[in-house]
Each structure stands twice: as structure tokens, then as C-alpha cells.
């Protein structure tokens, strides 16, 4: 097993851990998700058909509209939501939504492209208030 640590900007939300689901694609709760089933529904999305429930999601950036702010809160209220969102860089909307939903979120990683640093299936611990993410692989 390999264990390593990534540093990032101070994030939002509680400490969490879970299994990573990684894509170099982008994220919008409005455009990309079937929030009832908890899956990616936009056919063009690289994670189309996969479940995001309880995953540590890793994306390039946030795209799309302002609805994500309310939608993260709505998803969290039904517990059909990711545990955390990690980005290379995020936009204000998803940040505002994570703040309202008390969902863990971090961006601006020191060591480069986070979508390449973390692999789907890794066990990931996210410590937003410390700007720290620990990865267990293998």
C-alpha cells in the first residue's frame, strides 16, 4: 500500500473519507446529474451512468449554472450526495453550495493536476480546514 499527502488551499466543510471517483471532466449539478438516482446522466459526461453517492469526487473545474448552489444542499438533505468535491479550480457557485450544504470541498492543489494525482478507487481522507488530502492506494 502507498500512502501520500496532497496540500491545497484551505477548503470548506467537515473532515471526511471515502473512495475516489476521478475524471478530468468538469462538474455541474444541474447539467450532469440525475439527482434522484444519484448518477451522472449527461451522455457526454465522462462519468455518464456512474454513481456519485458517498464518493470523493475529483474534477477539473466547475461549469454551468447557479442551480448547483441549491442542488448540493438538496442532495445532501436526502443523503444521495458525494462525500466531498475536489477540483483543480472551482467557481463561486459550487463553493456557495458546499458552504450551505456543509459538504467538504477543496481546490488549488500545490502539486499540480489533482485529476492525475488521485486515481479512481483510491481511499481518500479530506481535511478541508487544514488544506490537506491523504491518499491510500493499493
Amino acid at each position: 500500500m502507498t500512502i501520500f499527502e496532497l496540500r491545497c488551499h484551505i477548503g470548506i466543510g467537515p473532515d471526511v473519507s471515502g473512495e475516489a471517483l476521478v475524471t478530468d471532466d468538469n462538474f455541474s449539478a444541474r447539467y450532469d446529474l440525475d439527482r434522484i438516482s444519484g448518477t451522472f446522466s449527461r451522455p457526454q459526461h465522462k462519468l455518464a451512468g456512474l454513481s456519485y453517492v458517498d464518493k470523493i469526487m475529483v474534477f477539473n473545474t466547475a461549469k454551468g449554472g447557479v442551480a448547483s448552489a441549491w442542488m448540493l444542499h438538496e442532495m445532501a438533505s436526502r443523503q444521495i450526495a458525494p462525500k466531498a468535491l475536489l477540483f483543480n479550480s472551482v467557481n463561486p457557485i459550487v463553493t456557495q453550495g458546499a458552504a450551505l450544504a456543509n459538504m467538504s470541498m477543496c481546490d488549488r492543489f500545490d502539486d499540480g493536476d489533482v485529476t492525475k494525482l488521485i486515481t479512481s478507487g483510491d481511499l481518500v481522507q479530506v481535511y478541508p480546514s487544514q488544506g490537506r488530502v491523504v491518499i491510500e492506494r493499493g
Binding site: H9, I10, G11, I12, R30, G65, V66, A67, W70, M71, H73, E74, A76, S77, R78, P92, T95, Q96, A99
Partner: peptide, 28 residues
């Protein structure tokens, strides 16, 4: 939100416009 984006302070705004359709809001 401001601390996440390293804001130094607040700025006064003159108008606000809110998106809140109920599909997005949900019961919560």
C-alpha cells in the same frame, strides 16, 4: 465563501437577483 476566495473585505451591492426554482431548491 469570502475566506475560501481570499477576500479582504466586503463590498456594498445595490441590487440582488436570486435563482430559486423549486426543482433546485427541493423540500430542503
Amino acid at each position: 465563501v469570502g475566506q475560501f476566495f481570499d477576500a479582504d473585505d466586503f463590498v456594498e451591492v445595490s441590487q440582488a437577483h436570486i435563482m430559486a426554482d423549486t426543482e433546485s431548491l427541493g423540500e430542503a
